[in-house]
Amino acid sequence: MVAMAKAKADKGADWFDTLDAELQRKTAEILSDVGQQASKRTDLNKTLIEDAWKIWKRFNAMNVHLAMEPSYERWAVFPDTFPDGDWRWREGFNPASVQSVTLTDRTQEQNRIGDALKIAYYDTDRRPRVKISFEYCEGEHYYKYSGWKRIWSIHTLLDSSADRLDVNEVHKVLGDVVKAWYESHLRRNRDLLIKHLKKNYERVETYNQ
């Protein structure tokens, strides 16, 4: 009887040892995958933030103020000259935690306030995607029960899975739209930007606020 009990105990231990080994392997695989994803997202977000900062500086040079999120105060340290001097990443800042990078026009003329270039993550079927869009106000409309509302349009410039996002495509799209945005400021003609967006990019959403 003692021998039979010992055999059953050994058999039970063997079963759990096998399961435990499988769980350990699965844990290692998942941790490795999560680590790789975090590393890729860190690199991508650093690139996106640096790109947005370069755009911010170019507009700032002609006295056009864009509000940037995340703010440089969160991720950068300027030991010497702001904003054109050298900078370094702020200690403790986690690029992988950034969910969106946005440049918003604060110019009051020509109804430009709120014109915004946005790069944002969102999930579809639990898989992260990246969407680049540009939104702007097309005017106001009076609603009987809620009064005057601003009408906003959003154009999708690029929409891709985060894993397959081509940085060259990102730069191509940013270059195209930023060029039109910048020229519209130089010529003091916002319609140049709006016409460019309507001609070249799908308008996927309209809402009022």
Rank of each mutant, 00 (worst) to 15 (best):
A3M: 06
M4Q: 14
A5S: 15
A7H: 04
A7C: 03
D10M: 10
K11Y: 02
T18G: 02
L19Y: 07
A21F: 14
A21E: 12
A21S: 14
R25E: 13
V34S: 07
G35C: 08
Q37E: 12
K40C: 14
K40D: 14
L44D: 05
N45I: 09
N45G: 07
K46A: 03
I55A: 00
I55Y: 00
R58H: 11
N60W: 09
N60I: 05
V64H: 00
L66R: 01
M68L: 04
Y72R: 12
V77T: 10
D80F: 02
T81W: 00
T81R: 04
D84P: 04
D86P: 10
R88C: 10
E91G: 11
N94D: 11
N94M: 06
A96F: 10
S97K: 14
S100M: 10
L103T: 03
R106A: 12
T107E: 07
G114A: 03
G114W: 01
G114T: 05
R126Y: 12
R129H: 11
R129S: 00
I132L: 15
S133W: 01
C137K: 14
C137Y: 06
E138L: 09
E140L: 13
Y145I: 13
S146K: 13
G147A: 05
R150K: 15
S153D: 03
I154W: 04
L158W: 03
R164S: 15
R164C: 08
D166Q: 01
D176E: 12
H185T: 05
R187E: 07
R188S: 13
L193G: 10
L193M: 12
L193D: 02
H196Y: 04
R203I: 15
R203F: 01
E205I: 02
T206W: 07
Y207F: 12
Y207Q: 03
Y207V: 06
Q209S: 12
Q209T: 14
